[in-house]
Nucleic acid binder design. Structure first.
Lengths: 237, 237
DNA sequence: GGATCAAATATCCTATAGGATTGGCGGACC
DNA sequence: GGTCCGCCAATCCTATAGGATATTTGATCC
């Protein structure tokens, strides 16, 4: 297991530090020692999602190596994985760069895909979702959306829970991979769209709690269509 | 640009060799120099798909490095990308291994996904596919399926063309990533199922040639459902 | 004879050094 | 003033060495 120490990432050389129950639950999947590469992967992905690494920005391997205090090898492995997931691109003998911001065509394609898959996942989730996950869903309901980042995290969790609730890992993984790009795109404009979206979320949640598959499907479809409409306005081209 | 030389992969140090027109056209997208990592990636992926590396098999880094005549770094990058695509898995301090063969649950999930996406792609392909690609589609029609591998390649090309014909890169990429696993699964059993599948392919092709979206969608759905039925029989569990 | 423990091996993981290539910058030339 | 050419810096790519760990093998004990 590896832990970041004052900004740096260092090999694990000691006891596992105590961890609160909630932390242990949240980091359950990270708990298995997976090496520096995965740790670096998460770090860079987080920097991309937080726009600390804006779209279309050069990413130097040895700069990262110095900054994180690790060798180049795990950086390369992490960047290779990020490249396979479409978050960075590599040009031979030139280096890595974060993916450029989505253009209109890509946004269209992404929402066509979401519109195809997510309503189906919502319908299945209404039938198959475990009662405990439904409870978790209530937790991300729209009681209050404190900040932009707060809503973004809530939105991510909302869609992740429903995608997983469908019981199909392939669908959940595909949607998670895509949602990252939605997150980045939305963050680029800091739009304050929490109000409507939260209401739409609640409609989906209500349908799932009522175990009404058809209602969940149509509510999710409506939510994605409106979300698409809100985001589309930011692109003129 | 990098070229394999008698089994080994070596850095490019000379003129680009002459290449026939068809080769140049086929390798157009490979023509840009992308480094050893990508070359190694293709090589390993090909070995996995050809079952030269069977499922659930250990893959040693420095064995590969010696075999291919390159350093460990590009091997690691290639394996990281393969891991991100789900073709190998890494266990800390234990090494890489090819993904185990799909079990029943994974097969179900995969075909649920295909059934959700591919008929939609076929419908769009019937509307939007370029005439030249429709012509390419005829080329992979069922004139003759010489061998098992011949049919496998034809099937891969068939589904790839239709997925791309829909015009959505995300859909095409997702399906391509999944189809690799279908290919591996089918190869594990060397089933002689070419006859029926080729007939079903032709039905889809006919519908697309007629620009009949609804017919293409239902024909593709039928094809995938039957394909699922044929493959499901191989799993008893 | 079976089980347990310890050493040895093979492998991975990390770090550092050296070679190769691209892109940008400045000066010279037309 | 515009264009072309050569140099320099930054970066990537490769190779090798050393430390750490999991697995396997063998011997010893019960």
């Amino acid at each position: 297991m590896l832990y970041p120490v004052n900004g740096k990432i260092q090999p694990f050389c000691g006891k596992v530090p105590v961890m609160s129950a909630v932390e242990a639950a949240a980091d359950r999947q990270i708990a298995r020692p997976s090496g520096l590469a995965e740790e670096v992967y998460r770090r860079i992905r987080a920097d991309i999602m937080s726009l600390k690494l804006p779209p279309d920005t050069r990413v130097s391997v040895d700069s990262l190596a110095r900054e994180l205090g690790v060798s180049q090898t795990p950086i390369r492995e992490a960047l290779s994985m990020l490249e396979a997931n479409g978050l960075v691109s590599k040009k031979h003998f030139t280096g890595y760069a974060t993916a450029p911001r989505m253009d209109r065509a890509q946004l269209d394609e992404l929402f066509e895909f979401r519109l195809l898959v997510e309503p189906h996942a919502a319908r299945k989730a209404a039938d198959a979702m475990a009662e405990s996950d439904v409870e978790s869903l209530r937790a991300v309901s729209g009681d209050k959306a404190p900040s932009h980042d707060g809503f973004a995290d809530m939105d991510t969790e909302f869609h992740k829970l429903i995608a997983q609730g469908g019981g199909n890992h392939l669908i959940a993984d595909s949607l998670a991979r895509l949602h990252i790009h939605v997150h980045i795109f939305r963050s680029c404009f800091r739009s304050e769209i929490a109000e409507e979206a939260v209401h739409e979320h609640d409609e989906v949640i209500a349908a799932i709690r009522a175990r009404d598959g058809a209602a969940a499907e149509s509510a999710m479809r409506r939510h994605i269509e409106r979300s698409y409409g809100r985001l589309r306005d930011f692109i003129k081209e």
